[in-house]
Design a protein around this nucleic acid. Sequence first.
DNA 1: CCGTATCCTAAATGATACTG
DNA 2: CAGTATCATTTAGGATACGG
Lengths: 133, 133
Amino acid sequence: MASFEEPTFAAACATRPILDQLANKWSVMILSVLCERPQRFNVVRRRLEGITQKALTQALRRLERNGLVRRRVIADSPVAVEYSITSLGRSLQQSFQAVYQWAMDHCAELEKAQRDFDSRHLGETIDHEDEAG
Amino acid sequence: MASFEEPTFAAACATRPILDQLANKWSVMILSVLCERPQRFNVVRRRLEGITQKALTQALRRLERNGLVRRRVIADSPVAVEYSITSLGRSLQQSFQAVYQWAMDHCAELEKAQRDFDSRHLGETIDHEDEAG
DNA sequence: CCGTATCCTAAATGATACTG
DNA sequence: CAGTATCATTTAGGATACGG
C-alpha cells in the first residue's frame, strides 16, 4: 500500500496540464453551449454573459489546441467562423455536465453553508465580495 | 423554444460563483485526497506536489466555506489540524472524479492533439510554455 | 464579423518572515 | 505544526484601437 507520503498528484503527472487548462468555468460553459450545435463566435459570446472577446478567443483556442473544439471558416467577407465540438470534446462535456448539474442541484445548500460560515467568522478579515448588493 | 439569443449562462445565475470557486485544479485534487480519509494539513500539502502553503490554506478555506470540507483541531501544542470531506463534498468529488478519470483516459489523445495543433501553427506567436525541457 | 495588439489595472502567485 | 502577514513579481482581465 505504499507509504502514503509520496505525492498523489505529482507535478510531472500528465493530467496536471490538462486540469490546469480545462478545469475552469469558461471551458465548462463553452463546451456546454457548443454541445447543442455548432455556433458562431459572437453567438457563443452572447450566450456567455460577462465573457470578453479576448477571454473567449483564448478559451476557444485552448480548447481547439486540445482537440475538443473545431474551428471552421465558413465565409470570407465578412469573415464568419463556426465552432463545433469534437467527439473528444463531447466526451469531456459529459463529465463537465455532471459538475454543472451538481452545482445546480446544490446551490441552495452551498449558499446556506456560506452564510453559516460567514456568521461563524464575524469580525475576521474574510473578503467575500458577493454581488448580492 | 425561446429565441436562442438570450444568454444561457447568465451572469446572475446562482451556479456562476460555484463554478468560479470550485472549478479549478486544486479543488479537484484536494477533494480527491481527502476522499480517502481525513488528513492533516501538511500531509495534504505533501501529496499535492507544487502547491504552496498559502494556496492550500486558501483552497481549504474556500472548500470549508462552501461546506465541502470540515476543519477540526485535534491537539493544542503543537497544533494539529485535521481536514475531512463532508457528505456534500463527497457528492461533488464523485463528479470531479469523472473529470479526473477522463483526463487520465485521454491524456495521450490530448498531447497528440496539441502536437498536431502546434505543428499546424508553426511560426505563429503562440506561447505554449511546456515544461518539457 | 472575427479576430489581434496594446496598454493598463486587478488579481493571483511565490518567497520570506513571523506567531501561537 | 498550522497558519498569518507582507511584499515583489507574475499573470490574468478589461478597454480600446486597429486589421483581414
